[in-house]
Amino acid sequence: MLWLKYALALTTLVGFWGAGLGLSPFIPLPASLLGLLLLLLGLVWLKRIPSALLRVSQFVLGHMLILFVPATMGILLFAEKLADNLLWLVLSIMLSTLVSLGVTAWICQRQWQNHAHANTDNEHVKR
């Protein structure tokens, strides 16, 4: 009977991906992201994670490397085109990395300052 729970959990994961796929023509986000957001909303509404869903999702995440095989094959198939644009690819990767690190550092710094400021205000109230 346990296999039935796991089969239902896997069907649930695939179903949420399918729901995201159905919404993707209307919402400009990838189907997998929409499916994850729907799953998140469902779990928040449920207020717990079913144990079978947790086990199946951990198994899938543990074997996620298999999902990168098509991307690797794409790189091998289009190696010549990638080599022609290597400079622009490297520059865009470096620039996007620097921008994302800068934005993340800026947000963390603001949050840290707000948190420190809130703690200082709370100490004044306690006195």
Rank of each mutant, 00 (worst) to 15 (best):
W88H: 07
V44S: 11
C108A: 00
L82G: 01
W17R: 08
A83I: 10
S32F: 08
L46W: 14
T104R: 11
N122Y: 10
S96H: 06
T104G: 01
L36W: 03
P50Q: 08
V99G: 00
G22I: 04
A19N: 03
M94Y: 05
M64N: 09
G15D: 02
L82S: 01
S51M: 06
G35L: 03
V69E: 04
H63G: 00
N85I: 07
L13H: 03
L41P: 02
G74P: 05
P50R: 07
I66A: 09
W112D: 04
I49N: 09
W45S: 10
I75Q: 11
V60L: 15
Q113I: 10
G74V: 09
L29W: 07
G42C: 14
L21C: 06
L29V: 06
L23G: 02
V44T: 13
L76Y: 13
T12A: 09
A52M: 07
A83G: 07
G74E: 13
L41M: 08
K47G: 11
L101E: 11
A19W: 02
E80W: 02
W106V: 06
L13D: 03
C108M: 00
P25E: 04
W3Y: 11
D84C: 08
L98S: 04
G74H: 10
V125W: 13
L33W: 08
